[in-house]
Write a protein that binds this DNA or RNA. Structure first.
Length: 350
RNA sequence: CCUUUUUCUUGUUCGC
């Protein structure tokens, strides 16, 4: 049974929920009863793919088979409710937990807190922390990370930085996500120099930078016009054994496209392919925008039409710059033709 | 540490 559970988990992590569900059938066929861990694994896997309906169906199935949902099951469900923006519903389930015989744990609290933060209910979040503390539920790294992320997004960077120091004082030491969150927050506010200082501090403390750390810094450097240095960080990543991903190249690509430097833009795309990272929908969307900014609508449309052949569906973001550019130049006939094409391709306008 | 749940990064949106 552990073997099956492990395999099911593997498929879920690889984003292959259907194969995982198949294994559930096989497992039963071989005479192994799925247990609560099997169901939890599948439910969280489905939740991660946003298939909350299927997840609920599995919950019913597990109950029908006399497999009692545990706190992990409920945490997954509460999480998917939050991800769908149904925080109120999530809180109801949270409140019902006790009557179901489970005390919400630190995971449950962090999930709700994150849900509240993400939909901007800062006051409710603050109140929730109060409840949490009153119950003797001690904030952990994740709690701090969630809070700091929210503070950063609200531009309250100094408060976020204070929390960083508070963590150390309370013996709840920051991890790479803490630093990634702050570095990104600083970069987004164009406080790149402070971000670089934190990057150094991270290194001093022996907290290893990740691809995401570099991506945040690279994006920050690009946004303040330090594209040259951003590009050099790619080399530094390789030196440290980190593999730049699509996001890394997309950040640099955005900078070149904003500059209207289509030559360098195509160079970076070549480099990404050479380094084993295939362009994604964002890469194309970025390039299309760059082409439009430089008036090259025909090229942009060509790229757009080539996307399906690469197995990618253009989205509204890929179409919008073309429409916008044509509209601004009063080329409405062409704009409407593209709009029609968009609808024909089944792309929803936004 | 080693079967399951929470936190971090990239593209579009007029003129002045």
């Amino acid at each position: 049974r552990v073997t099956f559970n492990t395999l099911i988990n593997g498929f879920c992590k690889a984003g292959e929920a259907p194969k995982a569900a198949e294994l559930l059938q096989k497992m039963a066929a071989e005479g192994f009863e799925p247990d609560v861990i099997t169901y939890n694994t599948l439910i969280s896997g489905l939740c991660r793919k946003g298939k909350s309906q299927e997840a609920r169906r599995l919950l019913d199935e597990m109950v029908a088979r006399d497999c009692v949902p545990d706190l992990v099951t409920y945490n997954s469900l509460i999480n998917v409710m939050c991800k769908e923006g149904k925080v109120e519903e999530a809180r109801e389930l949270f409140n019902e937990l006790t009557s179901k015989g489970h005390e919400p744990d630190i995971y449950t609290h962090n999930i709700i807190l994150h849900g509240l933060c993400k939909c901007g209910k800062v006051d409710a979040a603050a109140e929730f922390i109060g409840e949490m503390l009153a119950k003797g539920c001690v904030p952990d790294r994740v709690t701090y990370n969630v809070l700091m992320d929210r503070l950063c997004r609200e531009g309250r960077l100094n408060q976020a930085m204070q929390l960083l120091r508070e963590m150390d004082n309370k013996g709840c030491h920051p991890d790479y996500i803490t630093y990634n969150t702050l570095i990104d927050g600083l970069c987004k506010k164009e406080r790149v120099q402070e971000a670089e200082e934190l990057f150094g501090e991270m290194d001093d403390r022996g907290i290893t930078a990740t691809v995401i750390t570099y991506n945040s810094l690279i994006d920050g450097l690009c946004k303040v016009g330090r594209v040259e240095e951003a590009t050099e960080l790619i080399d530094e990543m390789f030196v440290k054994g980190l593999v730049p991903d699509k996001v890394t190249y997309n950040c640099i690509l955005t900078a070149f496209c904003r500059e209207g430097n289509i030559n360098k833009a195509t160079d970076i795309i070549q480099m990404m392919i050479y380094n084993g990272q295939n362009p994604d929908a964002i890469t194309y969307g970025t390039l299309i925008n760059g082409l439009c900014r430089t008036g090259r609508y025909e090229s942009a449309i060509k790229i757009l039409r080539a996307m399906p052949m690469k197995g990618m569906l253009p989205d509204a973001v890929a179409y919008n710059p073309i429409l916008q550019g044509l509209c601004m130049r009063r080329r409405m006939r062409e704009a409407m033709a593209i709009y029609t094409e968009m609808l024909e391709q089944g792309v929803a306008p936004d």
